[in-house]
């Protein structure tokens, strides 16, 4: 975008830009720095205003594994979020294709109905949904966590917006070549919506890895707890083991950061490829 060759004022501007980004990054980073430092404190220090622990308690991290089956909880969370993401991306892209590319009677009305369901607060649906789970025998099962989250209007809406931006000429050309609707979806639209798909995948994965209320209500067996529910182990009648909680939260963030760093490269490259093709 910036095609000018580097000159002294440009270099100064670039440095200023980096300075600004650093300051902003620090503002985002500060609470996490606090979190990591708090994870190195002793329980007695937890409520103190000082940021730095008197001496770092690396043992807190090992203690987390002694108090809760951390890896088990994390595996549960990762697998559940993974399935939800996969199902969500697949079914939403199909539906979005139908709303963005196919012309059928009543389409826009159905779409608005879809959208409308997001406007009702989910809280009032918790009880009926739970009753449905009881009816299907899905309480205390992984499936009961995956299914209700796997089909949402949000994903459909997001991908529809993305697909609307893809030039129609491309799929019309494919159709003239005699491709079926499924071919158009699978061979033309899907590859071109890659940034949209990756974006939706990030959002869905993040959201479900962290979801708390539904897993809390659904699960009875400790070995099937997800990570956010498992973190409740550090809250007790006698207050909170803040130092251990912070250590556990710090560790729970690691897979997300790895995933994000990996996916964002995918996602930038995807756009560039898409732009070249489009």
């Amino acid at each position: 975008m910036n095609a000018t060759p580097p000159s002294p004022p440009a270099a100064a501007r670039s440095l200023g830009l980096h300075g600004l980004m650093t300051v902003l990054s620090l503002a985002m980073l500060a609470p996490f720095a606090w979190m990591i430092l708090a994870s190195l404190k002793t329980l007695a220090e937890a409520g103190d205003p000082a940021w730095l622990p008197r001496s770092a308690q690396w043992d807190n991290y090992l203690e987390v594994f002694r108090v809760i089956p951390f890896l088990r909880f994390m595996a549960n969370s990762l697998v559940i979020a993974g399935w939800v993401t996969l199902l969500q991306v697949f079914t939403s892209s199909l539906a979005a294709f139908s709303f963005a590319r196919l012309d059928w009677p009543g389409r826009d009305r159905v779409f608005f109905l879809y959208l409308g369901t997001m406007m009702l607060p989910g809280l009032v649906m918790v009880i009926p949904n739970y009753q449905i789970m009881v009816r299907f025998g899905l309480v205390d099962s992984y499936l009961g966590l995956v299914l209700p989250s796997a089909f949402t209007a949000f994903g459909t809406f997001l991908l529809r917006q993305f697909m609307l931006g893809i030039p129609r000429a491309l799929d019309e050309a494919a159709e003239i070549d005699g491709a079926s609707k499924w071919r158009v979806y699978w061979d033309v639209i899907l590859p071109l919506s890659r940034p949209g798909l990756v974006t939706l995948a990030i959002f869905t994965f993040m959201g479900n890895y962290q979801s708390f209320f539904w897993p809390l209500v659904m699960m009875k067996n400790v070995d099937k707890y997800t990570l956010p529910v498992g973190l409740l182990f550090f809250d007790s009648e006698h207050g909170q083991a803040t130092h251990l909680l912070m250590a556990a939260v710090t560790m729970s963030v690691v897979p997300l950061i790895v995933l994000f760093v990996f996916l964002q490269r995918q996602f930038i490259r995807g756009i560039q490829l898409g732009a070249v093709k489009g």
Partner: peptide, 8 residues
Amino acid sequence: IDNASQQR
């Protein structure tokens, strides 16, 4: 133990 309560 079924861990439930966040609020004492």
